[in-house]
Nucleic acid binder design. Sequence first.
DNA 1: TTGTAGGCGTTATCAC
DNA 2: GTGATAACGCCTACAA
Lengths: 351, 351
Amino acid sequence: MSDTANTRPTLSAVAARAGVSASTASLVFSGSGPVAEATRERVLEAASALGYAGPNPTARSLRRGRTGIVGVVTEDRLGDAFRDPINLALLDGLGDELADEGLGLLVLPWSPGSRADLAAAPMDAAVLLGCSADLAGSVELLRRRRIPLIAIEAPPLDGVVPIDLDNADATRRGAELLRELGHERVALVTLPLDIDRLRAPLTPEREAEATAYTAMERIRGAREVFPDATGVSAGASTVAEGYVAGRALLDVPGDRPTAIIAQSDLLAVGAIRAAEELGLAVPTDLSVLGFDGARLDGITSHVLTTLAQPAVEKGRAAGRAVRASLVGEMPAGVALGAELRRGETVAPPRA
Amino acid sequence: MSDTANTRPTLSAVAARAGVSASTASLVFSGSGPVAEATRERVLEAASALGYAGPNPTARSLRRGRTGIVGVVTEDRLGDAFRDPINLALLDGLGDELADEGLGLLVLPWSPGSRADLAAAPMDAAVLLGCSADLAGSVELLRRRRIPLIAIEAPPLDGVVPIDLDNADATRRGAELLRELGHERVALVTLPLDIDRLRAPLTPEREAEATAYTAMERIRGAREVFPDATGVSAGASTVAEGYVAGRALLDVPGDRPTAIIAQSDLLAVGAIRAAEELGLAVPTDLSVLGFDGARLDGITSHVLTTLAQPAVEKGRAAGRAVRASLVGEMPAGVALGAELRRGETVAPPRA
DNA sequence: TTGTAGGCGTTATCAC
DNA sequence: GTGATAACGCCTACAA
């Protein structure tokens, strides 16, 4: 048994066995330079004899100054971040765009529960996903590392490339539709306002302390049309939470809202279920507006009237920005738009 | 402006500025060794003056022989792999278990569409996720790299630590329940049989060439009770696919099956919808058995009779196996069991 | 076409 | 407590 049996073979071991120098062997594997056919074969033979699996990625990274890894920072536990269909679509787009470059995704949860060590994670660039103001700390850290930063729907941050959605404007357009139909009492079901994800009525105090950028932008857009609109914040973007929120808004004495602006389609579906359980027909007794426009497997509902966002394209745009920043460019930010898609869940209020 | 303005500062730059040696500065950051308080402060001061963000992760990895990264190899595009609630739960468990150790997850899709470069990805261990026989090639590669391998529900592979579920036995127990109730014509709706994910009737030929281990094990378990059972394979584990499969099985002339064994809850829900659309009541006209037992947000259905599997625990077990293998142990495999959970979707066949 | 030399940024070891 | 030295495994000028 040879003495190299137990330790990973190195390039020089292979070179030695093949009777060439390490640099020549290196050329065989990197392909960046001419090597005589005979030499190449001897090297490959030595490699397979030794069980050499190719250059050590870490050493190569150090030498080249590139890891081939892109970090994806999420504000949830892994599973939760990926439970949102919009994030999944985004991930598809991002993954596609990066896979071509041989870049891998390193998932970095940055939530109160478990937070990855952003200081120690090897990466060439990072995409900030469920962005809120709470991210400021992590951004600071990554910036010191001089890691190019791409943020999806985040408040403007110095030196961070924004991939934005017109959350406020899109919501405003949706709200205008409701107003044109004659609605006046409109309630909101929002995404979580911060990492505490408290499920509770909106209050000026809570809004003042909110950190979730997307949620706040959508609220802002709604208020441009219905300045006094209030409502409840959900604990997550799920049908179950939408249902709870819907009950809270609809199962009340006195005047109910005639329309609900939900900040995601899942929340909208939940609200609709709450309404129907209370004997309210959608859209005759209650109009419901959603947000996202992603296909929801297995969740039956009316055809939602919703603000459809280009989620896959968001991911692609982020991927392109990552690639640009890796070749030293400072990529321009991207602003994407959501589109009002007319379904069957809004109508004039009952006379 | 100093001449170090444009390049990432290094540990020795910091050391130089603080007037100490690199090794001493290193101790300040790694904390592994005694450093005089005054020295420490001077070093930290120099670091912040230079904008040093801590030791370069790649260099550290090279030196320490550890990257702090665990690869997760999936057989789908990212988005698709994470669309399955079972995988999400598993990821939660795995992430939890690894986060404590400061280990990050590097997602490596290994599908015909986009396959990560398993030879070049830095990692200390890998978890094989949507495992099928097609993985053999990638396993071979990773094994040559001497990377500890943990496989979730995979066919036995030399040197790979298995985290198994009793797919065959659990399905058999479910099938036995159906037989005891008096069912004789039982049809299967299976998970995809291979990476082609063809949606089509089961045939001996297709089964012979199938590579998806979990699907085949569950088929095997069903056949222990209903040796002649046949059915259709779905193109994915979704309600939509379950619906299509259900139509194919139920919307036929002649004797319909009186029971369906679906290989996931999503498929089961789809099959139930197909049945009801055809005017068949569940469970009176048709019994449906699911698999998984995960909570499905927003997907309303009967309370499923299903084989509930410990998905989070699967992830945790994999995480523990990873940790063990990183300290040089060869972890024992783990065998987990699914439990028959009686819901309201099975009943005796109509007389 | 091949080899030599040097360094990527750290940290472990061992002296002092 | 601190510092010199070497090594982790590879790649790339440059020289031969």
